[in-house]
Amino acid sequence: MNTVEEILDFAIDREQQAADFYSNLAERVSSAWMKDMLLGFSKEEMRHKGKLKSVKLGDKLLNADQHVQDLKIADYTVDVEPAEDISLQDALIVAMKREKAAYRLYSDMAANIDDPELKSLFLGLAQEEAKHKLYFEVQYDEQIMRDN
């Protein structure tokens, strides 16, 4: 992965994988409303993918400097197995943690690279993932920890 194009392809691929992950899970779950929700997550990932595609086509730019709030909810929740009887709470935890992992991945890549252009690209991707994570964290905060 040495060119911008390759990196973006990699990222687009990751988003696709995530979308597939959620739609597969949605097939399997038994809980009444989880299916709808997981398909919603999947759509969300496809939206991210679409955004990266337009970055690749040069229609959009990634902003590496923005500050995205980190609620740090994902950091202290336990790991959850995506099982058939997954609850809403657990699904959100899974989502948060996936986005967090993606964020870490891009951040690490940025740290290990010297090319300023690529570095900035990785940082931009990391911020994107941070934003996605924030979305799930906010939902967790609102839907699960209503009383906390």
Binding site: S30, S31, A32, W33, K35, S87, L88, Q89, I144, M145, R146, D147, N148
Partner: peptide, 16 residues
Amino acid sequence: AIGQGGQIDFIPAEFR
């Protein structure tokens, strides 16, 4: 006591 969720798995999948 951080919040509660519901449970409606008794509704068969074909109605959902």
